[in-house]
Design a binder for these strands. Sequence first.
DNA 1: CGTATCCGAAACTTGGCAGTACCGGAACTA
DNA 2: TAGTTCCGGTACTGCCAAGTTTCGGATACG
Lengths: 216, 216
Amino acid sequence: MEGSATAMTQIEQAEGKPRLGRKRDLTRDPEILASALDVLAETGYDGMTIDMVAARAKAGKATLYRRWSSKAALVLDAVACMKSNEIDLEDLPDTGTLRGDLIAMVRTPTIRDGERKLKVMAGIASMIARSPELAAAAHEALVEPRATVNRIFFRRAIERGEIPAGVDVDRLSIISPAMVAYRVLMLGKPVDREFLISTIDEIILPAAGVRSVDCR
Amino acid sequence: MEGSATAMTQIEQAEGKPRLGRKRDLTRDPEILASALDVLAETGYDGMTIDMVAARAKAGKATLYRRWSSKAALVLDAVACMKSNEIDLEDLPDTGTLRGDLIAMVRTPTIRDGERKLKVMAGIASMIARSPELAAAAHEALVEPRATVNRIFFRRAIERGEIPAGVDVDRLSIISPAMVAYRVLMLGKPVDREFLISTIDEIILPAAGVRSVDCR
DNA sequence: CGTATCCGAAACTTGGCAGTACCGGAACTA
DNA sequence: TAGTTCCGGTACTGCCAAGTTTCGGATACG
C-alpha cells in the first residue's frame, strides 16, 4: 500500500499546503533510489551507508533525510520501486508453444535484470525474517513478477491443450526462479542462456507433462 | 582445509609446548559454536554481537577471543562445523526405488535441520559475495551435503535402469534444495512433508524420466 | 527585493559494537 | 606453595555509522 515511487516520501504528505520557497527537485528521487539499489546490491543492507548512497547520487545527506525518514525507509522504498521496472504483461511473447514462450523470455537484458534483483535480495536476506514490510515489498517487486509471467504461459498452454489441465501452475511457475536463485546465491555460478534453456527442457517441460518426442 | 571443529582454534597451534597453568576446557568449543549459530540464524551476521554469543553460551567475552581471533573467524568456524552434523553416507536408506529413497529422506528432523541451515544461510547471504572463505565453508557445509545424498540416489536409479543413463544427475540433485530454499527464503512459507513429497512426484521424478504410470 | 525552502557539502553529536584489559577465583604444574 | 593459564564477568577504549545541524549558494514566490 501507499504505492508508487516518489509518492512514498513519508515526510510531509499534507497536500493542501501552498509551500513557498524553492521547490523540491523531484527528478532526484529516482536517481537516489537507483543509487541506493546499486549500493545495496554491492554491499548488502548493513554494509550500505547513507554517505555511500549520497556520494553515488552526488547528493547531500540532508537531501536524503529530507525525503526519507531513515535508512530503513529509504531501502524499503528503493526495493518497492524495483516493481515499476516490471515487464509489460500486455506485451508478452506468444509463440504458440509453451517451450517457445519460455525460451522467448531467455534474453540477455532479462538475465541481467534478474541477477541484479538477486543481488539485492541477497543484500536484504537477513532482514526479511525480521521486517514484514520489507519482506512484502521484496516479494512483490522481486519474486512475484517472474512467477506471474510464467503462470500466464502455463495457463495458455493448458487452454491450448498442450499440457494437462491438472498441473500445479503455481509450483511450475516457481521452478525457474528457484533454480536461478539457487545457482547464483548458493552455488555462486553465473546464469547463462544455456543453463536456462536446459532447465526448461530437462526439468520444467517434463514436469509440465508436455507430450514430448522422447516419451515413447 | 584446516578441518575439524575444535582444531580450528587459530591461535597458538604450536604443539610441542608443555603449556602450564589451567587447561582450556575444550568442551566449551562446540557449545560456543552452537550458540554462535543460534544467534547467527536469529539476527544475521551484522546483527549478531559477540556479547550475544557469549551470553547465550554463558561464557565470558575473553573466553571467546582466547579461542577465535575475531568475529569473522568465529562465524567462519561455526559455519564450517555444521558440516560435521552431516548425514552418514554409508547409512543411507536403500528402498529399491528412486521414489522410495527420496521419500525416505523426508523426515521431520531432516526438515528441521534444513530450515536451520537456511536461516544461517540467509544470515550470511550478503557476506558470501565478499568473503570467498566463508562462501566456500557455507557451500561445503550447507549446500553440498544435500546434493551429495541426492546424487547417490540418482546414480543408483541409473544402475538399476530405473531412469535413463543420460540424465543430468547434478541438475536433478539440486532441484529439491533449490525449491526448498526458494520457498523458505523468498516466499517465506514453511516447508512441510506434503510440499516435499509433491515436489518429488510432480517435478523431480518427471524430470528424471521415470517410466511412471501416467506416461501413456 | 525579501523571505522561505531547496541544494550539495561538511562538521558535529550520539550510540553501539569489536576488541582489550582487568578482576577474583579455579585448576593445573613444578 | 608459587607461578601460570584458564574461567565468567565487567569496565574500558576506539572506531564507525546514523542522524542532526550548519553553511554558502540557488530557486521560487509575493
